[in-house]
Design a protein around this nucleic acid. Structure first.
Lengths: 337, 337
DNA sequence: ATGGAACTATGAAGCAATCCAAAAAAGGCC
DNA sequence: GGCCTTTTTTGGATTGCTTCATAGTTCCAT
């Protein structure tokens, strides 16, 4: 698990070669202005000749600092997270930090392990997208960490830390409002697992939009399913058996929407013409699907950027209250509605 | 760009608290068996009480070793690379390495910068997916690096290093062979930029398959375009103007294939019924598209895993010749053909 | 010349661990 | 108990760089 390295050129060697002290050489690598141009040039020349490579590990040790930040996400293959990662990565890159990556695959033990590893690596800060099932121990542990940290995407009640998240209920409300404005009165909510908080939040927004418009919530139009394309297919077939079928469908996710559209076609309906469809997530395919999917975007990149900014403020000791940033999703209208 | 840390508990403090020497404590954190159970227990107890966190940075400095590996890719939002990353990550996680991530967005200067940063961080090894446009300087530099390294996905002529790549010509050949076997004689090759090596490689396989089957290559059936959905749309509209249109289409990429299918529908054809379509890449959407797309998969996860394995062998000083692993893509038949 | 700023440069200590060789403790046997 | 072997434990040096207080140079104005 370890890998040893052969002779690296050290700052001492450079200094010796250039005929100055190590301290001087050190000041030069760090671009300290109080070194004369003459010696600076001389030393830089020596570095070039010897092929010197700065050793951040040693530097960080001595200066008790760190220029890496850890970022722990649950799944890179999920488009949301890979986009989120890009957002974080970009923002931190810009200010000179390097990213240590970890993926939990939604396992508590892996998350625990990654937290340990990153702290052992002396990361200067930590961005954590917590796994869904979190214990009291986790909460306690996170509160114990005195490394700057921001929680993202999923909030952990009880954890005192900055947080960047998305207002899912509001997203659902926007989607349903849009369908109501288009004149629909029977709007289904399809897909998703009833027990998951993600579903509950969308459902809240859905109910809210309907009741504000004076429409009744028909439980028969809310059908749960696995959060997959197949799930969407099943759900739509079920809802179409209703004697009074919906005229528009708000789907739990884009994936569900794809299944729903497949089901509609099987039953001879044309999505976007006979029945309006709205998805949720704005996965990249939504745009290129047939038909292009109207959906709700939660701006994963922007979320990542905000998380990085909050972390940066903490790391640079910018004094402020604990912060919560809740981003509001936006509706993206395409041909499926 | 730096972040200083408050008092961390050190091994000295632990040792003092437990009434042993630092050396002993050090042996214990490293699970050295020649420590009596009594003292081990005592010291572990002290660590617990003081909340000791192992400092890998200091340890790596002293032992001249590293337990991080750097991985540089061109784009995380590209599904191929995010899957590739998962493959690498998983394999390295298993053997206890931590991943330092960098993204070049296909920029040479960013790649240069990332290489420097990672070497300065004393990574134990490096997996590099080089940017497309690479200079002689890059080649020279890579040959100078004496950190274990493996190149992946894109080969750099002149660089002496292990390599894991994909046999794209063979993938194209397999796709076209399949269409020929289905009885097609007029097979188009649509999409992609003529100048890119990725296109040329697919074209080689395409030509090869046709000529081996005794079929003539009709230049009018090879239409280039931007590697986007729009590009695919344009290309297919153009090829359909042909007095003798193709009966099957091999697309440069899945993205192109989506555009091609859209174009076919516009002209009243049903993809998979009237005209067979084969894509390339097997992006996750290919499976859930309408209709599901027959395509060529190049197993990004597996590629990542292989890269990680090669790197691991180098890092653990497993003596062997320089290695090249070329994976052969596979055909995945779905309803679009 | 000369005294005092204002620049530059440096020596030695220190960061938190590991390494190595050598000392101390424990066991075994006569 | 004494002697030898084996098992545990330990100083002190070391890793490559930064820190900090101090020393050495310039450079002007006196």
């Amino acid at each position: 698990m370890k890998q040893s390295k052969k002779g690296r050129v050290t700052l001492q060697q450079v200094a010796e070669h250039a005929g100055v002290s190590t301290s001087t050489a050190s000041l030069i690598v760090r671009n300290n202005p109080r070194i004369s141009d003459a010696t600076r040039k001389k030393v830089l020349q020596s570095m070039q000749e010897l092929g010197y490579v700065y050793d951040r590990v040693a530097a960080n040790l001595r200066s008790q600092s760190s220029d890496t930040v850890g970022i722990i996400i649950t799944d890179i293959s999920n488009t949301f997270f890979s986009e989120f990662l890009i957002g974080v990565h970009d923002a931190l890159d810009e200010v000179g930090y390097t990213v240590l990556l970890g993926t939990t695959f939604d396992s508590v033990s892996k998350q625990d392990h990654l937290l340990s590893t990153m702290l052992e690596h002396r990361v200067g800060g930590l961005i954590l997208c917590p796994v869904s099932e979190s214990t009291e121990e986790t909460v306690a542990r996170l509160n114990d960490i005195d490394t700057p940290m921001v929680l993202a995407v999923r909030e952990l009640p009880g954890v005192k830390s900055d947080y960047v998240g998305i207002n899912y209920p509001e997203g659902a409300r926007i989607a349903v409002d849009y369908l109501i404005e288009k004149g629909h009165e029977r709007i289904a909510l399809l897909g998703g697992i009833r027990e998951s908080s993600t579903w509950v939040e969308r459902m809240e927004g859905y109910r809210d939009a309907l009741s504000r418009a004076g429409l009744e919530v028909d439980e028969a139009l809310m059908i749960n399913s696995a959060p997959t394309r197949e799930g969407g297919l099943e759900a739509v077939l079920k809802v179409l058996e209703n004697p009074e079928p919906p005229t528009a469908i708000f789907c739990f996710s884009d994936l569900i929407a794809f299944g729903v559209m497949q089901g509609l076609r099987m039953k001879g309906f044309t999505p976007g013409k006979d029945i309006d469809i709205v998805g949720f997530d704005n996965v990249p395919v939504a745009e290129i699907y047939h038909p292009p999917l109207t959906t709700i975007s939660s701006f994963p990149r922007r979320t990542g950027k905000e998380a990085a900014n909050l972390l940066y403020q903490q790391m640079e000791k910018i004094k402020r209250e604990q912060q919560r940033i809740i981003l509001t999703p936006e509706l993206i209208v395409r041909e499926s509605s």
